[in-house]
Design a protein around this nucleic acid. Structure first.
Length: 655
RNA sequence: GCUUCCGUGGCCCAGUCGGUAGGGCAACUGAUUCGUAAUCAGUAGGUCAGGGGUUCGAUUCCCCUCGGGAGCUCCA
């Protein structure tokens, strides 16, 4: 038997060998860290015996695949521990996930104390060092096996498999056996570092009509250092969480009596948003050829009946005057589209006038379910940089490309271009009633967007069931600190709306023709964008978007007049500046300014006043020395105008 | 909307086995006039999320509502 290794080398073995023995053979001691083997691309248990020629990749806990095997085994140890402490708990499923593993149980909720007790029990099991043994049963016997053990969820899982299936199990010692295809570590002793991180509720098979289970999350690593680094990472995440940091930094707040998903922005948060808004509006209007509209925040239900929202999206709208026969039923707008269509239809358009690009900084209302709201990323009222582009079909490719370019430019300027991924969001072919249009419409429009992305060399994934009900989307997705993905920017192609609303343009033959429509955002909504900026920068924003860019710190009251003079010079240059005129020591003022994550502090005292200079201290580099006032003004004005993202020198590398 | 945990001054938290609350930071006032991450002293601030119930008495126990976290479901 010839075994080819990943590095291309190969070795002949006279008789059948287990992966474990081969691992021992190739490199003495490797088996101590080997957790599984990848045989011809398929991950196998270490004990698997190889009999024929194959390629073999020994996986260790340092490999991504190997780590999954380790974590998967850890989830089985978790299951055993729970069965020890709660013999009546019923087992559901326990897979490895991206950053760890979980296991679902039908039992009472777990408290943190319960998790600690379970961890202790797991340690005992690991220390006992039970071997994991694989065995197989025919389907009928497998069902009986789990029925005898009173594990209804396992029985259900096996019943879903074909009649002739051979079912695989793993036992770990005598005490515990679980339904599992594997692979696993050979021995529970291989788990060197793990932690149960949280518990929560989950539905059996993710179905809210089915049983409510208790899920325990945990993670496992090759060694304690990796685990500690992961736990430190979790702490760092908490520090960046926009919902915590944004409130701490006094950018926004919520009030119980105002309601869920309705954030209030403070002067500081508002100033940041206004900087983003003024930038994007100027950009669109001046450089990208948009006209701007202002349209109502509500409309009669008739409008939404034409647009299709009344039939497809009624649950998501705030409806007014419902049940009041004396008054007309209205709804707050969940989107701007039809409002701008009427602006377009206000006059006749020639084919020469297209594309007609209408932009609006638009406040929208969406009646999200109460459990969906989160910080600034899922809210009931938000303001979005929206546009609708009315165009001829022959212009679509070029215009879609322009939209992608604008979004790229915006992401890059915000400094978050590295955080995003592209997705082609398609309809759900198995649930067509949710959508307008037929197979042909969706096949064509989806192919169209796919083609545009391919031609622009964009790497993207495709997802079913993520489209708007009226058309497919190019979505630019970003993950929050917890790894949860949300749509940042969306570019949608809609070839159906024009027909419904009776929109047309006059072509070169004088005929009325239906235009196509692109719905697009350039930055997404300000609430969500601010959330991402907070998390991306951990509150240390680039200077241009900071609400307070410079704080002047007079050494004592004697220099307040000079501080005000410096402030006036900066204000004249449109820099957001304040003076800390409190009778505090300079060290105290610096400490506070640093806690406020300010980009620049200017210390002024006797020397500075005498020479018309400022002593510059920045968040980026610490002490930047003495500069003349003119010099500093020129420097910061340039930084703000160019929207420079200055790199921060780590504290310990500063002079 | 579902399950679960949670809600004590602006923030972080302590406390009450039922007898209406305390600390640190912040704020305010005074003194200090200071050279690169915390000067000293004093003052004020809480119907213990809101409502109802049990009780002689509730912030503490029970119920409902509102709000927050986690996880589902959802997401134009």
């Amino acid at each position: 038997m010839k075994v080819t290794l990943k590095d291309g080398s190969s070795k002949e073995y006279a008789s059948a060998m287990s992966i474990y023995d081969i691992a021992m053979d190739i490199s003495e001691g490797l088996a101590r860290v080997a957790v599984a083997g990848e045989v011809d691309g398929e991950v196998k248990d270490l004990r698997t015996t190889l009999t024929t020629d194959c390629t073999l990749n020994i996986l260790t806990a340092n490999d991504q695949e190997g780590l999954r095997v380790l974590r998967h085994t850890c989830s089985h140890v978790l299951a055993e521990a729970v069965k020890v402490l709660r013999p009546n708990a019923k087992l559901a499923i326990g897979p490895a996930i991206d950053e760890g593993f979980y296991y679902d149980f039908d039992t009472e909720p777990f408290s943190r104390e319960d998790l600690d007790a379970i961890e202790a029990e797991m340690k005992k099991i690991i220390k006992a060092g039970n071997r994991l043994e694989r065995f197989e049963l025919p389907r009928a016997e497998a069902i009986k096996f789990m029925a005898d053990r009173e594990e209804p969820y396992k029985v259900e899982l096996i019943e879903d498999l074909p009649e002739d299936a051979i079912i695989s199990f793993y036992s770990q010692g005598d005490a515990f056996t679980d339904l599992c295809a594997g692979p696993h570590l050979m021995n529970t002793k291989g788990i060197k570092a793990f932690k149960l991180t949280s518990s929560s509720m989950a539905y059996w098979r993710g179905d809210s009509n089915k049983a409510r289970l208790q899920r325990i999350y945990g993670s496992a690593f090759a060694n304690k250092d990796d685990l500690n680094a992961y736990l430190a990472h979790l702490e760092d995440i908490k520090m960046r969480d926009h919902n915590k940091l944004g409130r701490e930094m006094k950018l926004f707040l919520t009030a119980d009596v105002i309601g869920q998903g309705l954030p209030l922005f403070t002067p500081k948060g508002t100033k940041m948003i206004m900087k983003l808004q003024r930038w994007i509006e100027d950009l669109e209007d001046n450089e990208w050829g948009y006209v701007r509209t202002r349209t109502p925040l509500m409309a009669k239900s008739d409008l939404y009946k034409i647009s299709g929202h009344w039939d497809h999206y009624q649950d998501g709208m705030f409806i007014l005057n419902e049940g009041n026969e004396d008054k007309e039923v209205m709804a707050l707008r969940p989107m701007t589209c039809p409002f701008q269509y009427y602006v377009y239809m206000n006059e006749q358009h020639s084919y020469r006038d297209l594309p007609y690009r209408m932009a609006e900084t638009s406040t929208l209302f969406r009646n999200e379910d109460s459990g969906e709201m989160h910080g600034l990323t899922r809210v009931r009222q938000f303001t979005i940089t929206e546009a609708h582009i009315i165009l001829r079909p022959d212009q679509a490719e070029e215009e879609l490309t322009k939209c992608v370019e604008l979004c790229n430019y915006v992401m890059k300027t915000l400094g978050i271009d590295g955080d995003v991924t592209y997705r082609l969001s398609k309809w759900d072919p198995n649930n067509k009633t949710k959508y307008l249009g037929d197979d042909k419409y969706w096949d064509e429009t989806q192919a169209y967007l796919r083609n545009v992305m391919q031609k622009n060399n964009i790497t993207f994934t495709e997802a079913d069931g993520e489209a708007a009900f009226y058309g497919p989307k190019i979505d630019i997705q970003a993950k929050n600190v917890y790894g949860k993905e949300d749509t940042m920017v969306t570019i949608q192609l809609d070839c159906a709306a024009a027909e419904k609303f009776g929109m047309y343009y006059i072509d070169e033959n004088g005929e009325k023709v239906r235009p196509w429509i692109i719905h697009r955002t350039s930055m997404g909504c300000y609430e969500r964008t601010l959330a991402w900026l907070i998390e991306h920068y951990a509150g240390k924003f680039p200077t241009w978007m900071c609400a307070e860019q410079v704080r002047i710190l007079p050494i004592s009251d004697k220099y307040i007049d000079y501080a005000n003079k410096v402030a006036a010079a900066l204000k004249k240059a449109k820099v957001d500046v304040t003076v800390d005129s409190r009778s505090e020591k300079i060290g105290y003022k610096i400490r506070e300014a640093r806690l406020d994550k300010l980009p620049y502090m200017l210390v002024v005292g006797e020397k500075e006043e005498a020479d018309s200079t400022v002593s510059v201290r920045s968040r980026f580099a610490g002490d930047e020395g003495i500069k003349t006032l003119d010099e500093f003004v020129a420097q910061i004005v340039e930084e703000i105008e160019n929207k420079t993202i200055r790199e921060e020198i780590p504290e310990d590398e500063r002079k």
